[in-house]
Amino acid sequence: MADPELMSIGAFAKAAGLTASALRFYDDAGLLRPEQVDPLTGYRFYSQPQVVRASRLRQLREIGMPLPTIGRFLAAGAEEAARLIDDQVAKVAAETSGIQQAAAALKASLAQGACLALGVLPGPVLAAAVDQILATTTHDLEIPVLAGVRLEAHPDAISLTATDRYRLATRTLVPSQPPAASWSGTLAGEDLQAVTARLRRSPTVTLEAGERTLDLRTGDSTVTHCRLLTEIFPDYRHLIGSLPEVTHRVTIETHQILKALERAPETIGLRVADGQPSLLLSDTVVALSGTASGPDLTLWFDLTTLYPALSHSLGNDLMLDLRGPDRPATVRSADEGDLFTLVMPCPASPS
């Protein structure tokens, strides 16, 4: 005979906010065993303290946590359990974001008219260019277009441009088939980021512009839609055209400066002295192989601004065009097209 203080499966299900069938399922899964099972009838009975575990199990299922993870959660301490919740929320958020992006791109492609062929590019080269340019985007609620990438197609080249107001990067590519006509539009950066893995695996990618999307057709004929943003992209051409004259030109080895920056502090000095470049890292001076023109000069940069601009450069050599301690510096490199990046110095580091 069952303990009179125990609850039947029906009463327990009501107290825990679950169904009787769900309780049977969790029993079979080993997550919530009954306190007692009648050996003759097979009826399950539960105790009052088990309501807390059952309610927690229900809440975990409401956030989509898989059964194996729930088992680990129920056996974990508070710190580990909190981490498992955070991991699940992050997973759900990523899945939701992916669904929202796919739905938005699909809606944008509806009732779209004829597409304009913009050219054909090697998939791995286009994917690398997207990675390089996306590093200069930012999520700004006041200026959402800064999360986008400006694509411009001309008869001789296709360019990708992005800016976060502290940096500006432009990558130019030469298509194997030139665009049918000039075209420009701003692409949703998150859509581009989602498709880079597919682009990287395709020998060729055909770019086709529609009214609401840019379509990327890979070698297996799969088409991915990247939404076009309606906000006005900053007039970067005016910015570039209004830059003052270059006063110093520094040529250095890419690998050497990136290696030195691996142990760099938050702020880095770039010094030109006697025709030689060097880095100032806290109390350490690191001589760089290369050349430098112009009088002695020291500029300071935030690591978070300078390192991405250098790490996404092309080829073995970098050219830095300097204009003074309070003017944008240009990082230039060339290989399978060219990459042009503007980097803003920061105030001088305290001595």
Rank of each mutant, 00 (worst) to 15 (best):
M1S: 12
D3F: 01
L6D: 02
M7S: 05
A13L: 10
A15N: 11
S21E: 05
A22T: 08
F25Q: 12
D28N: 13
Q59F: 00
Q59T: 02
L60D: 08
M65R: 03
R72E: 11
L84N: 04
I85F: 04
D87A: 08
A90D: 11
V92T: 12
L106Y: 08
K107Q: 15
G119Y: 02
A135S: 13
A135R: 15
D140L: 13
P144Q: 10
A147F: 03
I158G: 11
T163E: 09
T170G: 01
S176Q: 10
P178S: 04
L187P: 03
Q193G: 14
L199N: 10
G210F: 02
E211V: 01
L214F: 07
L216R: 13
T218Y: 12
G219E: 11
T222Y: 11
T222V: 11
C226S: 13
F233A: 02
F233W: 12
P234Q: 14
L243I: 08
E245G: 03
L258E: 15
A264Y: 13
T267F: 03
I268V: 12
D274R: 10
G275L: 06
G275E: 03
S278R: 07
D283N: 04
T291M: 03
A292G: 03
G294W: 01
D302R: 13
L303P: 15
T304Q: 13
G315I: 06
L318V: 02
L322A: 00
S333P: 01
F340K: 07
